[in-house]
């Protein structure tokens, strides 16, 4: 796999960033998961978050999906605050209505797929487009068919999620997220729950999607080979902080920190 086109990875220097974390702190009880975290992600950029478990990677994705509320700082996506609502020039806690609007531009694929078992594959795919984006059934259906074709599951359109293998379920979940045409896609350990022989196919699919779209992608994964091929930037987390932030070639071959070396050594051994 050739390294990604690096010219596409630096638009952030000239245009507005897509994602901005500014001084973010997140605590669970007395446990501080993220400390004074600031970083930006440019439009179209693919950023992979790596680090030991408990280092707060998944929390970043969950904050972006508004599944968690932060304790300090601000987060914005596409120039709009996600953590707060700007009202009368003041930052106020976001109202549900506001959040719903911001969320429309963000999609997420979960470790455990989280498909709706009471709906068919088609039902899962058209649910968001028809109910949230206001697409007609016909439009949503053709979008669903297109995406299922892309993920190679066209013939499963009327199957129920329980009739699919884990790999197939995760492909459907990816298609479901894409059906919303998000600006930002969050991938939360999407292959961790899959049998080893199914992992490659799903990663290949994500690679194709990454190359054929301009979606900004944030990804938490333990698949270092994928991280290397797929991302424009890799961020190494440890103890709720960014320890190292570099292009994959640099981070995987010549990291600055001993801690990163140890971590890479540990995961690559497996």
């Amino acid at each position: 796999m050739p390294p990604p086109d690096t010219t596409a990875s630096t638009p952030g220097s000239t245009t507005e960033p897509m994602i901005v974390f500014d001084g973010v702190e997140k605590r669970f009880g007395s446990n501080v998961v993220l400390k004074d975290l600031s970083f930006t992600v440019a439009p179209g950029e693919h950023v992979t978050l790596i680090g030991p478990s408990g280092s707060g990677k998944t929390t970043i994705l969950r904050l972006l999906m508004t599944l968690e509320q932060l304790d300090e700082g601000t987060i914005s996506v596409g120039g709009r605050y996600l953590s707060h609502e700007l009202r009368g020039g003041k930052l106020t806690p976001p109202r549900e209505k506001y959040l719903r609007d911001v969320r429309k531009h963000i999609g997420m694929v979960f470790q455990q797929f989280n498909l709706f078992p009471n709906m068919t594959v088609r039902g899962n795919l058209i649910e968001g487009p028809t109910r949230v984006l206001g697409l007609s059934k016909a439009e949503a259906n053709s979008r669903a068919e297109e995406l299922l074709d892309l993920v190679g599951l066209k013939e499963k359109i009327d199957a129920h999620p329980t009739q699919l293998s884990g790999g197939q379920q995760q492909r459907v979940a990816i298609a479901r997220a894409l059906a919303m045409r998000p600006d930002v896609l969050l991938l939360d350990e999407v292959t961790s729950a899959l049998d080893p022989e199914l992992v490659t196919g799903v990663l290949k699919l994500l690679q194709d999607i990454g190359e054929s779209t301009d979606i900004t992608i944030l990804c938490v994964t333990h698949e270092m080979g994928f991280a290397r091929d797929f991302s424009h930037r890799v961020m190494m987390f440890d103890g709720g902080r960014v320890l190292e932030d570099a292009p994959p070639d640099k981070l995987f071959t010549d990291p600055d920190h001993q801690r990163t070396k140890d971590f890479l050594h540990a995961v690559l051994d497996h």
Binding site: L67, R100, N114, F116, N118, G128, R131
Partner: peptide, 26 residues
Amino acid sequence: PKGQWEACTALSLPRLRVWTGVILPQ
């Protein structure tokens, strides 16, 4: 499962639809 609620959030489903389309049917 909590994941069902989170998937609803990730799809920005309206609250009424979350109940009538996803939670109660299960």
